[in-house]
Design a protein around this nucleic acid. Sequence first.
DNA 1: CCGCAGCACTTGTCATGAGAAGTTCAATCG
DNA 2: CGATTGAACTTCTCATGACAAGTGCTGCGG
Lengths: 257, 257
Amino acid sequence: MPLHVVVADAIRERIRSGDLAVGAPLPSESELSAQFGASRGPVRQALAQLRNEGLIETSQGRVPTVLGRPLAHSIDDFFSFSAWVQATGRTPGQHTIELAWRVPPAEVAGKLQLAASDRAVVIVRRRSIDGLPAMLERSWYISEVGRRLFDFDPDDGSIFGALIERGVPLDSGTHTIDAVAADPLDAEQLGVPPGSPLLRVERLTTSSAGHVLEYADDRYRTDRAKLAIRNSRSTSAVSRPSVARLAAPVLQEGLPA
Amino acid sequence: MPLHVVVADAIRERIRSGDLAVGAPLPSESELSAQFGASRGPVRQALAQLRNEGLIETSQGRVPTVLGRPLAHSIDDFFSFSAWVQATGRTPGQHTIELAWRVPPAEVAGKLQLAASDRAVVIVRRRSIDGLPAMLERSWYISEVGRRLFDFDPDDGSIFGALIERGVPLDSGTHTIDAVAADPLDAEQLGVPPGSPLLRVERLTTSSAGHVLEYADDRYRTDRAKLAIRNSRSTSAVSRPSVARLAAPVLQEGLPA
DNA sequence: CCGCAGCACTTGTCATGAGAAGTTCAATCG
DNA sequence: CGATTGAACTTCTCATGACAAGTGCTGCGG
């Protein structure tokens, strides 16, 4: 394992555990170099990584300080409902409502870049957190990917994980976020009155080569799940925001000032 | 200006302009070094920055390739409604409905970390895009920051920009996203039926020192604005997602595959 | 006691050099 | 003609050294 990863992991763990409190100063670069037996290069590489994750703040002449605790554990938390729920220490659940291979509506076909007569695999699942319905997922896969859904029981766990294991190159995703009123199916499955506001996340998953593999429409009960974004202007190198899903009861603990 | 910034800007511009098309290979590190008269250090620093912005993809042994065009122009686009709308080539508008200094409700006081009897400055504004109402903003500032709101006309433009100019260290933000039903004020100001689903973004803005300066509750008409997130699992160094607001009619153009 | 200069220390930037590890492609072997 | 080997190329990793620029503290002078 590369040295700079070792250093970054160690510091990240010290922040996560609270050993390095929010606002506390980090050891200087030279101290870190000595501690890990590394030269300044890998240490600076590790600090750049942490700065980029929004965990620390650095500026010239001043020792780096801790900005906040980590939001998401890994990038997969954002792609996989199961991975996300498990990472927050809860139990994910899923109940398949429909699994079919058919011609999708025109708008879905457009997003999947299919011809009008091409079929796709659709799966509708109710996802729950600790047994409570939290999200209704309508997912369309291109046939080549979707046929693998018939190889295993979708009630078993993560489709994302199962597809990755089978070598499907799910890689990049574009998520579009808005709000919709619950339609009759949403209302019935999620246990809310029809017309209730739901948080909708539309996901377009592509391979590393850029081919569209999946289009999904996920609708969340906002009392059970939200999204969080943290970003900072200060960090000298333009930092990227940090995005995570949040389970409602974790909100306070999950969002340190 | 630092060399690695010069290199990064130059490459970013070549990607933005289409000179380097999506999927095209970049020059190798040694070629870039020669072109800019720099050693490998700054060149690698620039490439790391671009990789982190999701613009390029690198892996060992292979020349970097272009992944996609930039989503957001700058980080400020996410903090400032005005900056965002202008960056998309539209005209932002604002109409102040209320500006007051009073004791906030308990929940707001809690988020601002105020004592029960402390006052704060509240401003309610309707924001529009090209004259069409798009968002209703309820913003609470701690008194020290909020009193500056009386120094200028909030209908003039960006409060964020004005506060930054006056030295207020608005720096980091945590955004929580969910959906709510339009209350009577939302409905009236945004021109939608009461109970319509709205996309809500709660924002907690803090100084670089970690003090809470602002709490805001922004509610968007989802037909006029959405959020987009793009992220990738592949990029060797853990890449950070890219977040942007989207004005509805820009959706197609704004989201290259 | 206050203000300021100076020093020690910090991070930011850049150059050079070297080996490990992965990719690509062409020549060679079966 | 297909499979394999190998060399040339690439990026990744790391070490060392140096200077610039910003911060914070100490001690001096007023």
